[in-house]
Design a protein around this nucleic acid. Structure first.
Lengths: 156, 156
DNA sequence: TATTAAGTTCTGCAATAAAAGAACTAAAAA
DNA sequence: TTTTTAGTTCTTTTATTGCAGAACTTAATA
């Protein structure tokens, strides 16, 4: 049986973990709360209450979390409030595709570095060549693996 | 033909990119310089000169970059100085394995969240189930893909 | 048309983190 | 053995970031 305390500890834990991913503690807390609350969706105001945070902080952080696609806003006709819930149309595959995009930046950096070198055959150039080779491979391979997930899901 | 300016712009660019990965600008600059300098290895002192930074900043940041395995220190008998170079024994595969470890933390968080829920069948629980399922799959699949890289390299 | 409600955006402050500077350590050289 | 060199560690300064509070916007209600 889970207690209120277990849950608030969980919310803080989520805050700290998401902080390591470069998001704010508060953004993580919002997600954490949505993961353990029994309500399917919670209002903006409830977030300020439960997380003891200002409206401005909740505002900026729900926006950030919405952009990552982890949560989504829900509006109800005849109700002015905005509610938030775990985004059921989150695509985990899509999230990983974004990672691949990051890898492309790194690869581009290595390529650019190599181009700036005078001697394309020295040790550092070889180092860069190897980096580029690996990134080329992984950038191609990653999406293939993710395709397998879609197949795996279809056959269930 | 690459100019001095192209290279210093590159060093700054590397600093900024590595900043987005949660490292310091200076750590990125050190790597950036090693990627474009014509020297195979550079001394600690040269780093302070070229990057216009204090010894303490260089000291902490070469340590950080060494820990990520991107660079390594080189010492020469009869020479008191420490030199740094791109680490030729960097394992790109190993770097990606570390990513997989991070995924395990996230998966553990989702599992813990699910355990804290009263109703294991509601929408949020299903969301968590899906997250866990995907992470389970990717945590298994990732290392397999990386094994393929080792094979690919051997057959060349 | 004035008032309330629900958020957003802007400004300022407090906490944190990065970098500098100073004091220190270890080893080599004088 | 004392001085210099090379770098580390501790302390202070500076810059950045996250959050709060206030002012503002938009739309609904009185």
């Amino acid at each position: 049986m889970s207690t209120i305390n277990d849950r608030s500890a969980y919310i803080e834990e989520t805050g700290l973990l998401f902080e390591t991913f470069g998001m704010t503690r508060m953004a993580g807390r919002i997600l954490g709360y949505l993961m353990v609350t029994d309500k399917e969706m919670v209002s903006f105001d409830e977030l300020t209450q439960v997380l003891q945070a200002s409206k401005s902080s909740i505002s900026t952080n729900v926006k950030a979390m919405t952009q990552t696609k982890f949560i989504k806003p829900v509006t109800i006709p005849g109700d002015r409030k905005t509610y938030y819930m775990l985004s059921d149309d989150i695509s985990w595959v899509e999230l990983f595709h974004q990672r691949t995009e990051q890898l492309k930046y790194l690869k581009a950096l290595y390529k650019k570095g190599l181009n700036l070198r005078s001697n394309k055959k020295d040790k550092s150039s070889v180092w860069l060549e190897n980096a580029i080779e690996f990134y080329d491979w992984i950038i191609e391979e990653f999406p293939e693996v993710l395709k397998k997930w879609d197949l795996y899901k279809k056959n269930k």
